[in-house]
Nucleic acid binder design. Sequence first.
DNA 1: AAAGCAAATATTGTCGACAATAAGACTAAA
DNA 2: TTTAGTCTTATTGTCGACAATATTTGCTTT
Lengths: 225, 225
Amino acid sequence: MQTPLIRPAVTAADRVLLEIQRAIVEGDIAAGSKISEPELAKRFDLSRAPLREALARLERCHLIERIPNAGARVVKLSTQGLLSLYQLRETLEGLACRLAAEHMADSEIAELRALLDQHLSTQRVREGESYYQEAGDLDFHYRVILGSKNAYLINILCDELYHLVRMYRVQLGMNGPRVSRAFDEHKAILNAIANRDGELADLLMRRHIAASRRNIEKQLEQTGT
Amino acid sequence: MQTPLIRPAVTAADRVLLEIQRAIVEGDIAAGSKISEPELAKRFDLSRAPLREALARLERCHLIERIPNAGARVVKLSTQGLLSLYQLRETLEGLACRLAAEHMADSEIAELRALLDQHLSTQRVREGESYYQEAGDLDFHYRVILGSKNAYLINILCDELYHLVRMYRVQLGMNGPRVSRAFDEHKAILNAIANRDGELADLLMRRHIAASRRNIEKQLEQTGT
DNA sequence: AAAGCAAATATTGTCGACAATAAGACTAAA
DNA sequence: TTTAGTCTTATTGTCGACAATATTTGCTTT
């Protein structure tokens, strides 16, 4: 899935932001490692001004942590952090679902249903390939969030937490056997939205994310605490 | 109340951020007006580099909106925006309450109770003065949020939404007759937290914020849609 | 007179260099 | 040998100037 809601990268800071974002999420720049401005500037062949702009935005989406006069470090993944993140997502995406049930246009709901059908066929063809599943999952969530029509909520979920969620998924190797089950859950959520049952949509989405969290936690235990 | 959770302003960008933040919140820089980097740089007597750093953070807390190559504007207040903001606050601070009921130490709860008692006496002395009430209200909410111990939640509420909430309150002239009632509601929330009843604390906080929202909306209607 | 185009102007984005602060290396004393 | 302090080095914060983009102004054309 192409990163959502992001304006076309018109400026140099935009471009380098996308590159560094990808590098961090995929572990190309190691979690916990120090960020050197001169080094990155050389590596991406631009001056420090746009680079610092990019770093400011990386801090915004919690991918790095900056200390004044001391520099930036890539965020460290932790069980505690994962828990906090999913705790928040449960509540926020639940709210998004409730609002989506109120605000999504019938046409948008129809499109979302079409998307799910498409995921189903894709899933059958590409059985086991995690990338498509992940992209599909995120795409579904993404559309529901947009359907809430709450600008602040959209900003938080799509801009500020989205990449961190991806980072946890990628670096913990989330491919898992949850594919088909997640698909059914999506379907149920969509039905609730289509029935304009915000309360049920909220509940189902919270459960969906809680299940996803437990799944990741299980992987964490296997890898090592 | 001193602005919370903000590191001591060590850098020039920090200082100018605080100044501009205050200016925007209090309407000293008009809502909807254009931000001129050269003008502000001259006004605060520094170069554009730290100023732009400050602008990036102002965008982060939704006080300005930037368009690439076209500049920044102070955010415009709207009924729609207010509704979205309070919708989100309801959910988030409800969650914060629930978590606070789980995670706050007994000592923290005791301190919070002391704070409320102090508010009560202050309120009796300074009957009608809005500043103290607002500060007290925000301080109570602030402590509960910190009590949640969820770093992402704290960041969103205290860093990203806090100043915008203040902006609505200040510019819509929120002093209102809700003082004593809000105080009672705080007391009830605290009791729920002290009883470790997260569910009730959640519910009460949501109602508290909903009441606050309705109060502001009433003011909005009086002023003009 | 109105609309569309073109030059001029102003603003934002980027750059390289300097200043201020923090991290690291080295020396000296216990 | 360890520890404290100082000096060196490297990194971040800030500056002023230049390049690229958007806005405004004025002119031309219908």
